[in-house]
Simulated scan of single mutants.
Amino acid sequence: MSCSKGAKRCTCDILHNTTPGRSVALGFDGVPISTTTANSCKNNPCATFVNSTTGVTIADCRKIKFVAFSP
């Protein structure tokens, strides 16, 4: 996976290319949150995630500092 549109879009590019249902850890200001990808729209910055604890989360992918994948 690569970032085609510069650093501000890097996380969005990665999430747009991630298969729904993939387990990921997201970083918001250094705090990792384990979750599962549900949907990421290519035409806007919204990304949807599901988690057994927090339920459904919709986040602006431009605000996510990092995405970590399990092996």
Rank of each mutant, 00 (worst) to 15 (best):
T37E: 08
V31L: 10
S40A: 15
C12M: 01
C61A: 15
A68V: 05
M1C: 05
F49R: 07
P20R: 04
K5F: 03
V24G: 09
T57M: 14
K5A: 06
N43S: 11
A38T: 12
S40T: 15
P45Q: 08
L26E: 00
R22G: 06
T36I: 14
V50Q: 13
H16D: 07
P45R: 08
K63E: 08
D13P: 03
T35N: 10
S70A: 11
V24S: 08
A38S: 14
T57F: 10
A25Y: 08
S2Y: 04
F69Y: 15
P71M: 04
N51T: 15
I64K: 00
L26A: 01
T37R: 10
F28R: 09
V50H: 13
K8R: 01
C12K: 02
L15E: 00
N39P: 04
M1T: 08
K8S: 01
D29R: 12
F49A: 05
C41Y: 11
T54Q: 15
V67C: 07
T36N: 12
K42E: 05
S40R: 13
K8V: 00
T18G: 09
N51R: 14
C12H: 02
R9E: 02
R22A: 14
K65T: 14
P20T: 04
S23W: 07
S40C: 15
L15H: 01
